[in-house]
Amino acid sequence: MLSYTTYDPLTEYVLRCADNNLILGHRISEWCGHGPVLEQDIALTNMALDLLGQSRMYLKYAAELIGHNETEDSLAFLRDAMQFRNSLLVEQPNGDFAHTIIRSLIFDSFHYFFTEQLMQSNDKRLADIATKSLKEITYHRKFSSEWTIRLGDGTEESNKRMQTAIDDLWRYKGELLSPDELDMEMLEKGIGVDLNKIEPLVDNHLSDMLNRATLQIPQAEFMQKGGKQGLHSEHLGYILAELQFMQRAYPGLNW
């Protein structure tokens, strides 16, 4: 297992939140200018903006915890793949609009209940960030849920594409909801979220939406994991190649 040793447990935990938002925000921002309809282009960009904004709050907190000269930018632009703590789900490619919507549906369902719980954290800063974010996340979940239903119950083609997207992405759901050592430790300290507690809530929401969308919940049980400990898919490296290009090519400058 790749180490927790890079950062202390609280920082690790904050980075998980930061990186999920950063990487998904980055992915969704790829749609900007290329959306299927102008209105949806704007809506997707809104979500990217929200996620990047939330990521900045977490990154700044993590930077303060680490100290030295760490900043939101050094954390975003100068860590390598194994130091990123996002889940595998959010680094998956946009694919077609169906994949983008299903990736968001799964993430938003998790993110909503996670953040709602995080508002109760006894770490005041985390609770504050969560409180500030919940309204946006509520909107994200509404957006991805409505589009899931619309496209699932749209045409034969859209139904097929959505089913393919679920079948492709379902395997990345487990990681979001299965606690590891760090999750347990943070829960014990009253800082982190009880993933076992939110799992049925997330699953309920997902199955409700998929039912209404006339889509099938995949039966495959095997779940991929590793992202939140720093073991990523091949996609992350390419994300970082673009995300970090400027800071790598021109180190240490003001922009």
Binding site: C32, D41, L49, L52
Partner: peptide, 27 residues
């Protein structure tokens, strides 16, 4: 399009968010 070309590669978080918002304004 020409501006969206740099959203993913903006050099800082602040610039990235500002550029994204700008391109969205144009939409």
């Amino acid at each position: 399009l020409p501006e969206a070309n740099w959203i993913k590669r903006a050099p800082t978080m602040r610039r990235k968010v500002a550029l994204l918002a700008k391109v969205q304004d144009e939409a």
